[in-house]
Design a protein around this nucleic acid. Structure first.
Lengths: 241, 241
DNA sequence: CGGCGCGTGTGAAGCAGATCATACGGGTTG
DNA sequence: CAACCCGTATGATCTGCTTCACACGCGCCG
């Protein structure tokens, strides 16, 4: 990794390696991938920057190089819900790109971010020219659909402890690939918006678990110590404190 | 439409016309469609019959010819949630067929049904041989994803009146294609499971609206009289009775 | 280094919706 | 036609979660 204080020698190349590793693109042959690279533009964002908003035309597919992006929606009365957090190496915004409809949620940089943007107009013909790629997208969409269905299930059937446990487990799962598993760098406020319950309630539940050593609370982070117990609570309408 | 009391002269043919009209298959050329027809088997189900259960391997894509199918999940403690109702001319079960994973929900005949079943083993190679078909499935999956995301949004951000209004509007929307719009043939119990709230609460809200002539309640059905007002309540955290 | 903003921690009070109990009509089935 | 089941209707109570109100520690920045 070269420094990025100076002007980068290979502006997009380094960032494309992230794309290269993504399940969607990893099987592309070198030539096709190079073509893809020509469509890509990179950008740097400050925390809080809006990438797109609900209702915008969906003109681009975005890949996260570093940092995390928050996919969320907000209601007129100020409440808002986090649907997903997108980390390095992941992509988002594919639905609007693929079907040409408006975006269904907001995307906001949750930390300083580097992203790679691929324009729909160039990308869509590219996908059609690569049948294998279409199948990959089908798989991606299926995965998303399973995830989202799971959320509906959770929100409708489970109570606060169940939902919170599920959310924590999902977040650790996600980070499994990276180095320090079990430590989740999110604020309680963020978790409350992911789970759809008030920050205070989340805090109380977390403290209850902390006193049992199921989790440890740090400033701006949560460490899962006893995943098994959480699993049990997440799995069913189980008994709890 | 011939009678179906006697043995049908063309067992699958008549039912395939339903497939033929579906957006996914309508653009297939005659030859390909005929091939598809050879993969299809039809079946008749009694109300309450299980088509598949959560966790089953996803071996088939199903199209509904007549009747409606309920896609639902249930928690160990007896509560259950209806994720979707599939009516005549619609298909379901595509996620498990496309990605080969287990089913994420149960499918149960909500009335006596005729269905057409297409086996994954034959269907998947067929899809791969028809690039246009893959794109159609991408569109279908995108639509599903938008729908499901909308559900998450609704469940997290809206209260009972909002969710109920949204559900009613969605159901009338769905029936727009068929003859008698505005009359929704569902029990209040079913609606409560779609919305994720208790039957009693649903009933009270519906009666409140009935007294304003926004809806009319019949036995096993609800008639939407004032869609505009419901739209307003569904659209935002609006005021209400 | 003192202030200010953000993330956290806690209790009191209020409320939306769940649960419980009970009743009634209509349709079907022995 | 009587018994029963299902769907609807409605009030009383109960409760999980929200809201509000406030306090504390930490890190950042003028």
């Amino acid at each position: 990794m070269p420094q990025n204080k100076t002007i980068e020698p290979r502006p997009v190349m380094g960032k494309l390696s992230v794309l290269r590793k993504h399940p969607i693109f990893c099987d592309l042959d070198a030539e096709a991938f190079e073509q893809l690279g020509r469509y890509a533009k990179s950008a740097t964002l400050k925390r809080g920057a809006t990438i797109f908003s609900k209702g915008d035309p969906g003109n681009s597919l975005i890949a996260v190089v570093s940092g995390t992006v928050k996919i969320s929606i907000s209601s007129p009365d100020g409440r808002n819900a986090i649907l997903n957090l997108i980390g390095p190496g992941e992509i988002f915004g594919e639905v609007a790109v693929l079907d040409g409809q408006a975006r269904t949620a907001d995307a906001i940089a949750n930390s300083n971010c580097e992203i790679v943007v691929i324009d729909r107009r160039e990308f869509l013909p590219f996908v059609k020219s690569q049948p294998a790629l279409a199948m990959k997208f089908i798989e991606l969409l299926c995965t998303r659909l399973r995830w989202t269905s799971g959320q509906v299930e959770e929100v409708i059937l489970q109570d606060l402890p169940g939902r919170l446990a599920s959310a924590l487990l999902r977040l650790t799962e996600r980070r499994k690939a990276s180095q320090d598993s079990r430590t989740i760098a999110v604020t309680q406020q963020e978790i409350s918006e992911m789970v759809g319950m008030s920050r205070e309630s989340i805090n109380k539940q977390l403290r209850a678990w902390a006193s049992r050593n199921w989790v440890r609370l740090e400033h701006g982070a949560i460490v899962v110590l006893n995943a098994a117990s959480l699993q049990e609570i997440a799995g069913s309408g189980a008994e709890d404190d």
